[in-house]
Design a protein around this nucleic acid. Structure first.
Lengths: 225, 225
DNA sequence: TCCTTTCTTCAGAATTTATTCAATATTTGT
DNA sequence: ACAAATATTGAATAAATTCTGAAGAAAGGA
């Protein structure tokens, strides 16, 4: 699936240069020549916005501010382009949440590298198949994160492991034995009740999704498909 | 802000001559007399290294190779100095990643001109753009600088590396293992507590941004998005 | 060399997480 | 419906992990 980059830049030559190179790299390219245009095109939710600070109408800083304020667009990574490195202070002072910051002129390969990096960074949490989605519950195993209704809820290690293990085997009933050897290993001895207690804590955290975890008496637990 | 040049040369007379002239031009000068010394001093991250090929211990070519291999020093421009000007040397030297190549003897004004040119080239187009912004904290990795609320705060090397590493991976939890192998390398052994202590120092310096770094017990640390 | 800075180790305090316990509730099989 | 088995719950206890202040090493500079 090809990624879309929105270029916001008023100098036509630069636009062409960037467009050409990005397309060559397999990106889908959108272009805006001024701030207003940029805000419009941003509604298409590109994977990244390459934004020149010095553009007409609302300038790049203002555009960034508005994009970050709007919930629909606030997650889109932004790379700011600016001519002078002294403008950095300004950017910082405004605390506007750009993801990267590049001073012109910059070499194309370097720019491409940074674009890819920013996109990769943004993607990891969601895109990878290390993420399991169960209704409104998102389990991100590489980042030790659980989102419940888009809100991050902290799970201590054992609880996280247990939830993840059940989720990885959703649809299947997991015997208590299996849980013990999967989470605790075969060497460790813990009481059977320990599992219950962790299950309870997990359910508490899951809130309205608590009954995602079903108990099969005499056997174990499972998460529904 | 004055630039630092590291002179690597074993002949004392030449060192003095270069040192005198560079200082007169406003450069800050470091000196190393052999390869080992050079690699050490390079950790100070000078703005340029003037490197004689014919030095004791690891020779100039080897030093170049190592400097280019190490992520910390690979960006430092190197001017190689050599007595012979055979083509072979030239090819080899430049292939190693040296930025310029000068045969002795060379006139001082000419040498100064090349030094300035190399520094200028390195500074303008490419550098300065690997800046990570986290709220009011700006991490400038090419210049080894951290700004907190626009004020520069000095971070010793390990602390800087650690902060940068977490920042480069913001949003994701970095396991202690990964921290150890990324910052200390796989050969070195340091206690786990060492990480904590560095984290603490970083947090102290971050002041009101201290909780940018979250600890995930039993796993590691992370910087929030 | 001596002095300063940075890095690492140490050990007790503080905190968080994991486990056990015991009383209660639920399910299962007869 | 009743006993037996199994799970849930709230609270207490134990274990683990990290934080902290301070001290010892190591590295670098004067």
């Amino acid at each position: 699936m090809s990624k879309t980059v929105l270029i916001v830049e008023d100098e036509k030559d630069i636009v062409e240069l960037l467009k050409y190179n990005l397309q060559k790299e397999g990106f889908n390219v959108l272009v805006a020549h001024n701030g207003k245009d940029a805000l419009d095109k941003a509604k298409k939710i590109p994977n990244l916005i390459l934004l020149d600070v010095m553009i007409p109408e609302p300038d790049g800083l203002e555009v960034t501010r508005r994009l970050k304020k709007d919930k629909e667009t606030s997650h889109i990574p932004i790379i700011l382009l600016t001519a002078k490195s002294t403008e950095l202070d300004e950017v910082v002072g405004l605390e506007l949440g750009a993801d990267d910051y590049i001073t012109k002129p910059v070499s194309i390969p370097r720019l491409l590298a940074r674009i890819k990096k920013v996109i990769r960074n943004k993607e990891n949490p969601t895109e990878k198949n290390s993420t399991i989605i169960l209704d409104g519950v998102v389990i991100d195993s590489t980042n030790y994160k659980v989102l419940i209704d888009k809100k991050e809820i902290f799970f201590p290690r054992k609880e996280f492991q247990l939830l993840l293990y059940l989720a990885e085997n959703k649809g299947r009933v997991i015997k208590r034995d299996s849980i013990l050897s999967a989470i605790w290993g075969d060497g460790v001895v813990v009481l059977d009740r320990t599992i219950d207690v962790h299950i309870r804590k997990i359910r508490e955290k899951l809130g309205k999704y608590a009954d995602l975890i079903q108990t099969i008496k005499g056997v174990g637990y499972r998460i529904e498909y």
